[in-house]
Amino acid sequence: MATLGQILTLISLFLSVLVVILGFSQKRHLLQATVEATSALFFIDLAASFCLLELLVTHDFSNRYVASYTDSSMPLVYILTAFWAGEKGALLFWALVQAGLMMLVALTENDAIQKGVLAIMGIAHSFFAVLMVFASNPFETFSTSSGPPDGNGMNPLLQNPLMAVHPPLQLAGFVAWSVPFALGMSSLLFGAVGVQWLKVARKWYLLAWALHTAGLVVGGLWAYVELGWGGFWGWDPVENGALLPWLTGTAFIHSAAVELRTSRFRMWNYILISLTFILCIFATFLTRSQLIHSLHSFQNSVLTPYFLYYLVFLTVGCLFVLGTRHKYLHGSPKLGGVFTRQGLILLGNILFLLLTFVVMWGTLLPKFSESKMFQDVINGMVKIWNSLNISFVHEITEPLAVGPDWFNKTTAPIGALLLLLSGLAPLLPYKSTIPKDIFRKLAMPALLSVLSSVVTLALLESQTPETKNFFIRIRSLGFLSGVILILFANFSLFVALIDFYSAIRAKMASANIGFLRALGNVFSANPRRFGGHIVHMGVALCFLAIAGYGQRTEIKDAVLKPMQSVSIGKNDLVFLGLRSTYSRDGYASLVAKILVAPKDYTDMTVRLDEIPSDVQIEPGERPFLWLVKFKQQEDAINFFLKHFSAVFLQQEMVLAEVDRKNLAVALAPRSLEAINLIPGEFHRLADQLKQVASILGHDRISLEMSKGDPLLFLRFRDGPLFQSFIQGFSMKPRFLGVSYDPSEPFKIKVIPEGMFKVVEPEVRAYPKFENPTTEVAIDVGIFSDLYLAFAKAPGSQSIMLTVSQNPFISLFWIGSFVMIICVVMLFWLGIFSRKPQVTAVFCGEVVQNVGKEGFNA
């Protein structure tokens, strides 16, 4: 199978070169041959992908890639996702998606459009085929042996359903930008450079944007639920790398809309789409090159020089094509003023590029500042500055780096301005200057946004337990920027909503139809305008989430022993204890049980059957909710031991041996794998029992540990105590916590089960990976998330709990979902809409007849 795979990658390279050669030809029959070669290429890549999947599912560890990223104990779903989890598999996946898109272009566009486009996409494919054949072949086998008996397994961080979909979406997003790029370049090389190529490219750049956005959002969601630091964007170099083409691509989508409407920004659009595609390759280069240290980097990649050469080739190629065609790219109508829709879109474009520059600068600064020349230039400027005696600045002697704070501070004002523009631009006409009724148009959304911002802020305040007065907090820059973001986001939201509402009302009145039908009609009649509104609404929701997230409350690394608590927001979080489990998926989990109890809880109406009728129940001191008072001390102790066994021991230990005659038991851990994988786990279990023995008295219970096996021996003084202990192992636990204090011998403190939520963050240990992974627990709320992660603290029973209350975070996922779904719908409508008449424009022969005028069509 590996040999077949190697042959198929070689054929793939041959076919992609064939597509390039045939695709650049001027003859019509060769164009048809290009389409056939593209089909052959796609099916060969598909066959190669099936080969790799077969090697993965059959655990063929003689293949280096299979041995590096899988092992025999992994669940099938992650074995399949190993296809793109490693560098070599990702190359094959990239080639497959590229060939798939070429096939889709060949199927959905007419012959004239395919000319040049397939060839340019073929160049992109050839690059990845070259990498597979000459540098990083996924079908490479061990040359001297048949491979290890088992593979290395997949990094546990990647064994997450979101990570199963994030890489393919992100890669597909990068690849999909190649379609509008190829259309743009082919229009420059072969056809007219008017708006025709943009009409064809529109659905493709919408698809690319939707996939790219989905990739970023799913990556953010993965970081939020998997990495345990509480956020969704860490400004990691590779994250930033993926953001760069998204920013230029988003700028391109806006300026393309202007060109489609007014034929302006022609050169600008060619530059933007070229930049977007080049930045996609740059982002991939960042992941592979280890240029900047990052969480996402592939280790020991050999591809760095290849990517560098490809980047240089693309940049020089684009500059050459644009340079030779630049004289045909002028002559567009005048802008018509800054306060027009196109003027604001241009301003937005500049802001997007400024953001791109800022993010790139912050990302590459550690690399730049390594260079002596860079340090000399900066130090020269520092000397001049210091000589002016304005303020003293230190010279730099080592590489500089900036952190998330720097990125947040520099990008937030630009983001806020873009948000404001997204609200203002739809109110203005494309070409003419400010209309007379602009203030009337502005008044309603402005008024509504102020009112809704007050409500939003009140909601935000209710989620954050700040004691400081609003008017004191507003003086801090962080809070003020949050308020501004909320105001602008609401403004953008209401501009879109009001326009939608007016159009729907007019449609309902004119066609005498219901609301939903009118909504459908309005959207389908002008999907560009209303699709844009929906996407802007999604963006506004995302910014509301960012504003809310900026005001989150966080408690970091609070050290807690069992039954200790921390307070956050309106809740007390009680650490109930730890338990360990072993999963069939091959890892052991240490689970912290955390009770989320509202601070103001007072209800005492519930009474459980397990509590004898002759005892008294009173409200207990926090965190214990009930205080159960007994008449006899022995009854209290028996009650405590029975429920202690049920609550804390039953899930983790089994009665290995019961000696009723001598009132003794031997306890063994339920899972030996968990004991072996989690350091100190057996001692934790033993310590739990030691504590009980010391509380009840060693004369009542004596404990011994086995010298060789993981066994604990307990001997009881009297029969009822022994019976209570045994009973606990066979009953359903009815409490979450139970405690006995010898200084109050008649009272047992309990936390009843079922009254409040229990959340369970985990730490997972994998047999083949040294570092444990954090599995966060998120209590998702409508207005805020409670986010918990923990690490083991010194001492067998203690944890370090990190907890944060993240207001409005759900709005980010909702807003992103709205944007992506809307853009996918627009792509879908584009695929099935009437084809624009572009044959004459793209066909080489006709262009020759049209001459230079054709380029200005």
Binding site: L15, S39, A40, F43, A47, F50, E54, V57
Partner: peptide, 30 residues
């Protein structure tokens, strides 16, 4: 089961690729 499906996939893909390549040759030298 999955292995069989993958093997069928490989066979079908290679057949379709061969067919497309033959058509490509035919069209090129027409």
């Amino acid at each position: 089961m999955l292995e069989i499906l993958l093997e069928i996939g490989i066979a079908v893909s290679i057949s379709l690729a061969t067919l497309a390549f033959v058509r490509c040759i035919v069209r090129t030298f027409r």
